[in-house]
Write a protein that binds this DNA or RNA. Structure first.
Lengths: 207, 207
DNA sequence: CCAGTTCTGTACTGATTTGTCAACTACGGC
DNA sequence: GCCGTAGTTGACAAATCAGTACAGAACTGG
C-alpha cells in the first residue's frame, strides 16, 4: 500500500552501465547518471545508494548477463565446439555482451568488457569492484574451458593441452582485444588479431 | 639570466606518471599531482600547462622510454631471439617499463601499461591520448615483429607465420595480461598465462 | 651590489561534485 | 473518498575541483 516505482530497475541499470562504459567511473558525475537514467538525484540515492551503489549493481547485472550469455554461446554438442570458440573470439571484436534494450555500442571504447574496464580504472582501490570483475572473469573462463574440453573430445584440439590454461589464455586475449580496440584500431585489424589467435590453437598432432 | 628551475623535469614527470597509473586520470586531482611531485600549483601550470599537459608529457616520456626499452630487450642475434621473446612476455607480468628512479610498482594495477590504461580510460574522448597510445603500441609491435623474424630465420618459429600478425597478437596478449593482472590475479597465474601463450607460438613443422 | 628575468608558492574564484533534506506526488487499503 | 506509505523531485550546503593572479624568492649579468 504505497506508491510503486515509476522506473524499470534493469532499464535504469543498463543506462547507467552505458554511461559508465563511455565515460568511466570517475568521469561520470551523479548528474550524468541522472540524465542518462532519467531518474532524479534523490531517487538514485534511495534506490541504489548513490554513484558507487549504482556501479556495483550495474556490474552485478552485467555479471549476471555475462554468466548467462557465455555458457549459452559456448555450450552445445562436441562437433560444433571449435566453431563456437571461433565465434566467441570474433564476437569479442564487436564488444561482447550488452543489454538487449541498449543499442550495441556508441564507440569502440565503450564496447570493452565492463568489468575489465572498471577493474582497471578503480579496481586497485576498490576491492568490491575487483572481486566482481574477478567473479565475472572466472565464470566465463569456466564456460570457455568446458567448450575447449568439448572440442578436445571431438578431436579438434590437441588433447594434451590443458583446457583451463587455454581458456585463461583465450580470455586474456579477449581482454587484450578490448584494450587494443580502445586505441582506435579498426575492427578489421581486431578481427585479424582474433583470427591469428584462433589459428594458433593447438591442433591434434596427426590427422 | 634568470632563476633556474629547482626541479628535475624527468623526475617530476615520473612522479606524475606514477600518480596517474595508480589513481587514473580523472581520479587524480591537481593537488594530488602537486603532492606527488612536490611542485606547487603554479609551477605545474607554468612548466607543463596543467593537468592535461602533465599527462601528455608524461605519456610522451613513457613512450620514449618504451621505444628504447623494447628494441633493446628484443634486438640481438638470431639464435637468442626466441628466448628474448620469452623473456619479454614474462616481463609483462611484472609490469613492463617504469622509470629507473621510480620504485618498481606499488600494486599490480599500476604496473599495467601506462599508455593502455590512459587510452582505455579517456582515449575515447581524447584523440591526443589515443594517438600517443597508438604510437606507443606501434613502436613495440615493430620491435616484436623484428624479433619474430629473427626467430624465424633461426628456425625457431614457423616460417609460414606472418611475423606482423604474430607480433600484434603477442602485444594484445601482453595488454590482456595487464588487465587480468588488475583483477588481482596472482603473479603465478599471470606467469602461467604468459607461458601458455609462449607455448602456442607456431614452431616449424618438422624438426 | 643592483636590476632584470624567471621561477615558486599561495590565496582566490567560479564552476562542479557529492550527499542530504523537506516538500510534494501517487497509489492501495479501508 | 480518505489516509498512510513509499517514491519522486528540486533545491540546498559542504566539499572539492581546475585554473588564474599576484606577491615574493632566487639567480645571472653587469
Amino acid at each position: 500500500m504505497a506508491r510503486p516505482r515509476s522506473f524499470d530497475r534493469d532499464h535504469v541499470l543498463h543506462a547507467a552501465e552505458r554511461q559508465f562504459r563511455t565515460s568511466g567511473y570517475n568521469g561520470t558525475s551523479v548528474d550524468d547518471l541522472s540524465a542518462a537514467t532519467g531518474l532524479g538525484r534523490g531517487s538514485l540515492y534511495a534506490a541504489f545508494d548513490g554513484k558507487h551503489g549504482v556501479l556495483l549493481q550495474a556490474m552485478a547485472g552485467y555479471f549476471g548477463r555475462l554468466g548467462q550469455f557465455a555458457p549459452q554461446a559456448l555450450a552445445g554438442p562436441d562437433e560444433g565446439a571449435l566453431e563456437r570458440l571461433h565465434g566467441y573470439l570474433l564476437r569479442a571484436v564487436h564488444g561482447v555482451p550488452l543489454a538487449d534494450d541498449v543499442p550495441p555500442a556508441p564507440d569502440r571504447a565503450a564496447a570493452a568488457c565492463f568489468a575489465a574496464k572498471m577493474a582497471l580504472e578503480i579496481g586497485a582501490s576498490d576491492p568490491e569492484v575487483q572481486r566482481l570483475a574477478n567473479d565475472c572473469f572466472s565464470a566465463v573462463v569456466t564456460a570457455v574451458a568446458e567448450c575447449v574440453r568439448a572440442a578436445q573430445r571431438n578431436g579438434d584440439i590437441d588433447p594434451d593441452a590443458d583446457p583451463d590454461d587455454l581458456a585463461q589464455l583465450l580470455l586474456t586475449i579477449i581482454r587484450g582485444i578490448d584494450v587494443v580496440g580502445a586505441y582506435g584500431h579498426s575492427p578489421a585489424r581486431l578481427t585479424s588479431i582474433a583470427e591469428s589467435a584462433f589459428a594458433l590453437l593447438p591442433r591434434p598432432r596427426h590427422r
